[in-house]
Every structure is written in structure tokens, then in C-alpha cells.
Amino acid sequence: MRIRRSGAVAVVGAAIAIAAWLNPSFDLGYRGDTVAIAAPEAAGDLASLLDQVKVVDRINDVPGYERSCKRGDACSFGPAWNDPRDVSGCDARNRELARQLRDVVFKDGTRNCKVIAGWLQDPYSGERVDLRDVELDHTVALHRAWNAGAWQWDSHTRQIFANDPMELRALSSSVNQAKSDAALDEWMPPLPQARCPFVIDYLSVMAKYELPITVRERDAAAAACATAPLS
């Protein structure tokens, strides 16, 4: 499977803008358990991203997906948080927690790898949550990616996808579980002002890996970013 290079400027620009908005060092003004977050400007160009992804009527369920890597299981996207491109010796989960959480504390003797304390301002709900209530989400759910075409990739490419920082977002466990394996037309962040950045994030991943979206997802993206209906 060839990862898209054309249109990279638009995709990377969108990703950088999203990362800036979701940067844990950005002061959101914590007030109790939730915060009031000013609506960010839509990051990137929705029309440009939609122009880069194929739109299909439906995406069918493809058998064979198994996230588990226990003996006898398919291990469809490789061992969890094992990035084949990384040589630091620190797993993808801890690297992303260290990047996205605040006031991070590392376990002694792990060379600033294993995160044992910290807190997150959830980007989709505005809630402040402690590390114990933080989970790492795949913006495009692995099962969704599998059905959209990842089932055709080699195992190495699937493992790269599952550990791509562009795909990984620290969320509160409650938000992550509500999102689950939902497609773009099935779930949106509870904060209205977080919906367009989420859409741009989602579409950037789909464009990068040349995965299709459905007509319903396209329409949901347009609605979330308050664009005119697409023909």
C-alpha cells in the first residue's frame, strides 16, 4: 500500500493546525471540572481534504479483523503501541501521553519513558482528567480503517498506521468509550467547537492513507464545519 504523497501540503498543514490547537501546553483556563473553550477556527481546508479522499456509497464489514495478539489471534495491526519506525525503546502510548498530558511524571529508571502521573484537558469534552482516566484513541478507529481498505495492506503498513502520531489522541476514558469504533457520521465530540477540528483530523488521516469515506461521512463533515451542502 502506498501512503499518499500528493496533496501533502494541505494534509500536513491541517495536521499542524490541529496539533497547535490540541497542544497540552496551551492554556485553556481551567475552571473546575470543565472549561469554556473558545471556538477555534477551522483548521485547514475542508474542501481540499474532501477532494483528496474517495467518496463511496458504503463501506462493508470485512471479516478477519482482530486487534488481539494473543496466541491464535490475527493481531491485525501488530502488538499494541509497538511502532516499527521507532528506535527510542519507548512505546508509542507513553510517547504520546508524555506529549499530550500536562505536569507529566515519569517512572524512575525508564529514561523519561513510562508516564506514571499527569493530567489531560480532554480536547473533545473540555474535562480535566487524571492519568488514571486517560485512554489513547485512534482518531480513525482501527476496525473502521480495516473495513475501509487496511485489510488489503501488509502487516507492516498496518502497524505503522496504528502507531502514527497523526492517528493518536489522548482522551478521557468516557469520551473514548463513547466514540469506540464509530465512523465520522456516527459520532462527534460533545463540544460543538471541537467537531470541525476532529473532522479535519479524521480526514487528514484518511487522505494520508488513501482510505475512502462514505457519502454520509462527507455530509457529516460538511455539517460539522458549517459548509454549504455538497452535491
Rank of each mutant, 00 (worst) to 15 (best):
C113G: 02
W146C: 05
D91W: 08
R169Q: 14
D154W: 15
V199W: 00
L22H: 09
D137G: 09
L136P: 00
A10T: 10
D181T: 02
A17I: 09
S68C: 01
Q193N: 13
A42K: 04
S88H: 12
R67C: 10
L184I: 05
N112H: 10
R144G: 03
R132M: 06
N82P: 01
P79N: 10
P24E: 08
E41R: 12
V53I: 10
R71G: 11
C90L: 11
S180R: 06
A228I: 08
L230F: 05
S173E: 05
V12G: 14
E96M: 13
V62R: 10
P197Q: 13
S6A: 08
H143D: 01
C225P: 05
D33G: 07
P63W: 11
R216Y: 12
G109L: 15
A222S: 02
C196H: 02
L211S: 07
R195C: 02
W153M: 04
S155L: 09
V129H: 11
A17H: 06
A39Q: 06
L131P: 03
D108K: 14
E186D: 12
G78D: 02
V55M: 09
V62I: 14
L211G: 07
W151F: 15
R4Q: 01
A162F: 07
V9H: 13
K208F: 06
T227D: 00
D108M: 08
M188L: 09
Y202L: 13
N23L: 11
K179I: 10
W119P: 00
Q100D: 07
